[in-house]
Structure formats: structure tokens, C-alpha cells
């Protein structure tokens, strides 16, 4: 077992439910690239965007404590989980009152030894773009994609430390390494408004409409994302946006692991491409 690429896998709640295709494609791509994922035993919800700060940090810290006992770093594909686990890690490492509150709440004695890594970070910076290019079996020549980073994958930079919050590159680089064309996308770092979907639906849909409209105008064949909430807004809510604003978007939204899987020669079934709401058939037939 190559320990360099072995992680405690933290799927989080979305990947075990509405973002099942992200879970499937993550595991398939990681296996192919030699990243060993051992699901963190008895992991709990990180608190997502819904729990208040002390609760989120404490819930997240329990997962960190579990990983510390296993002696593994955590790999999280979901940007919300990644943000919360990393914030909890920062809080514990900062020591003081917050660390005391957290460890008292969990009943653990977590010392901040675990690294929390986003899947995107591990693939781009540990595996590397050259190895990705070399693994490509079906170059995505002629495919035009826009990278959409959203918020928590890249911000705040004292939490998400692997990217430049102003000029993120990792999704751009992956798209290009797979042989596809990466289009310049002004909305790449903008918020999808997903956190407000149920409480202020009009806000969320309007923000996401702007993102989708630019991608459509650019003539993209698909949008590439790295977060289940971004995906839910751009993919699942797309038909609602089309009918609300009387526009046609019809743009497939792919997790970057699904896009990678297509180029690496993985089967559609392994990538969960039939689970996306906006049909990916056009892309698959290319």
C-alpha cells in the first residue's frame, strides 16, 4: 500500500444521497490514479451550512479526531465539508478557548495532527497534471468547458490554502490536461446562492441564472464543478430556471471527476452520468 496516496475518505452526507454521482466518480477516478480511499469509520455530518459555528466546529472536529486515531489525513470531495473540517482544524490548531470548547464538546483530545485535503487539491498537486495527461485514453478534443469554482473550494484563503482565491487554476488545468478547451469564464468564482435556495429562492435562482447564461453565451458544451451544492444549483435547478425566466439553457453540469472519468476511459455507469438531471448523452456521444 502506497501510504503517500492513502486517505481517510470523508464523503459527507450529500455524496451519500443527492450527489451520488460525485461519490461514484470520485472512487472510480481515485482508484485509477492510485489514490487509496479508506472511508472514515463512523463519520458524522460536518454541520454543513446549517449549524451554528460552535456546533459545526465541534461536529467537524469529531471527524478529525477519528482520522487522527487512524493516522490518516482526510480527503473530502465536497467543498462544504472541506471548508468546515478545515475551519475546525484551524480552530483547534489556534488553541485557546475555542480548542477547549471543541474538545470538551466532543470528549476527544484532538491535537490538530490531521491534514484536511480537497480532492481537487490532491489530484492536481499530488498526482499532478502530467500524470493525468498520461492517463488520458480518450482525449476530449473539441469539447468546450467552463470551470466553475464557486465559493468554498477556493475561499477563504486562510481555510482553503491550495488555490489562489483570485485566479484559481486547478479546474482550468484539469480541463486542459484532458484535451478539452477551457473557456475564459467571468463567473467562475461567483456564488451560486445555494445556501438560500429554500429561504430566498428568488435570490438563488437569479444568481445561478447569471452563471448559466454566461456559460451558454460562451458556447460551452458543459460546466465543470467541484462542489455538490454548486452542482445542485446549476444542474438540478436548471429546468426551474429555464421555466421561471423563459430561457433555454440545456447545459450539462459535470463534476470534474466525471469529466476526468470520460477522458480516462471509465465506463459511464461507473461515473453515474445517468444521475445528472441535465442529460449528458450529447457529451457522451462525442
Amino acid at each position: 500500500m502506497n501510504l503517500a496516496y492513502t486517505f481517510a475518505y470523508y464523503p459527507g452526507c450529500y455524496l451519500h444521497a443527492s450527489a451520488g454521482e460525485y461519490d461514484m466518480s470520485t472512487m472510480a477516478v481515485c482508484e485509477l490514479l492510485g489514490i487509496q480511499l479508506i472511508e472514515l469509520d463512523d463519520w458524522n455530518c460536518c454541520g454543513a451550512l446549517e449549524a451554528s459555528n460552535p456546533l459545526t466546529l465541534s461536529l467537524s472536529a469529531r471527524n478529525l479526531a477519528l482520522a487522527e486515531k487512524e493516522g490518516l489525513d482526510i480527503l473530502a470531495p465536497c467543498s462544504i465539508c472541506f471548508n468546515n473540517l478545515s475551519r475546525a482544524n484551524n480552530a483547534v490548531r489556534g488553541g485557546g478557548r475555542t480548542k477547549t470548547i471543541i474538545n470538551k464538546a466532543t470528549g476527544e483530545n484532538y491535537q490538530g495532527e490531521v491534514e484536511v485535503r480537497h480532492l481537487l487539491d490532491v489530484i492536481v498537486n499530488d498526482i499532478g497534471l502530467d500524470n493525468i495527461s498520461n492517463a488520458v485514453k480518450v482525449p476530449l478534443e473539441g469539447l468546450r468547458s467552463v470551470p466553475y469554482y464557486g465559493c468554498l473550494t477556493i475561499r477563504p484563503s486562510d481555510v482553503s490554502k491550495f488555490e489562489d482565491p483570485e485566479i484559481p487554476r486547478s479546474l482550468d488545468d484539469i480541463i486542459e490536461a484532458l484535451g478539452a478547451d477551457c473557456l475564459q469564464f467571468k463567473h467562475k468564482k461567483d456564488c451560486c446562492g445555494g445556501n438560500l435556495l429554500l429561504s430566498s429562492e428568488d435570490f438563488s435562482l437569479q444568481i445561478t441564472k447569471e452563471i448559466l447564461s454566461e456559460a451558454k453565451e460562451l458556447g460551452a458544451d458543459c460546466v465543470t464543478v467541484a462542489c455538490p451544492l454548486c452542482h445542485a444549483m446549476l444542474d438540478y435547478q436548471q429546468s426551474k430556471i429555464e421555466s421561471k425566466y423563459d430561457i433555454v439553457i440545456d447545459l450539462p453540469i459535470l463534476y470534474f471527476t466525471q469529466l476526468m472519468g470520460l477522458a480516462l476511459g471509465l465506463r459511464e455507469k461507473e461515473l453515474g452520468l445517468n444521475k445528472n438531471f441535465v442529460s449528458t448523452v450529447k457529451l457522451r456521444r462525442r
Binding site: S18, N44, C45, G47, A48, E50, A51, L196
Partner: peptide, 20 residues
């Protein structure tokens, strides 16, 4: 918003995970 958030948090309390 806080009522919606509470529904989510209740799920964590009951199951440890979100039951969407």
C-alpha cells in the same frame, strides 16, 4: 432560514448525519 436550518440540525442530532 433558521427554521429550515433547524430541520437540518435536528437530523444530525437524531442520526449523526443529514437524512435529506
Amino acid at each position: 432560514k433558521p427554521i429550515l436550518d433547524k430541520a437540518f440540525v435536528n437530523s444530525i442530532r437524531k442520526y449523526g448525519r443529514n437524512f435529506e
